[in-house]
Amino acid sequence: MKGTMKKISVLTVLLACCLTLSGCLTHWFVDSTTRLQIENRSSKTVVEIDILSEEDSDYKVWIRDTIRTGEKSRVYEEDWVGTFTMRVRTVGSDFDIENLKLDGGSEYMVLSDSTDGSLHYEFK
């Protein structure tokens, strides 16, 4: 009886180790999606947020919404976690943000006018 209990407990510990080591845990404290919200403090009207592909003509739309000066977008959740190139399309011109690192979770992005006429972004 004692021997069986010992065997079972050893097996349980082994199984627990396997489960723990193979993860199932990191997404308890790390987000695997990004929830993006944009606040437009620039003088331009934002119409779309895209993630660009290496092939320049290809892209995936993240936010398709008109965000006027002083407005906030709704929250859009997508699977973009990692390092990407983001394109902010405004009325009249496009702005690319290269090597944008997204760690997942809630991201509040504030767009404002830059001194050189382009857009400035900041995460808050």
Binding site: S22, V30, L52, S53, E55, W80, G82, F84
Partner: peptide, 21 residues
Amino acid sequence: FYYTPSREQLPLESQYGEHDG
């Protein structure tokens, strides 16, 4: 089974960039 503790250890390199996972 393979054990890769960090999600930046083996990212997926697609045409869009580097996806953590």
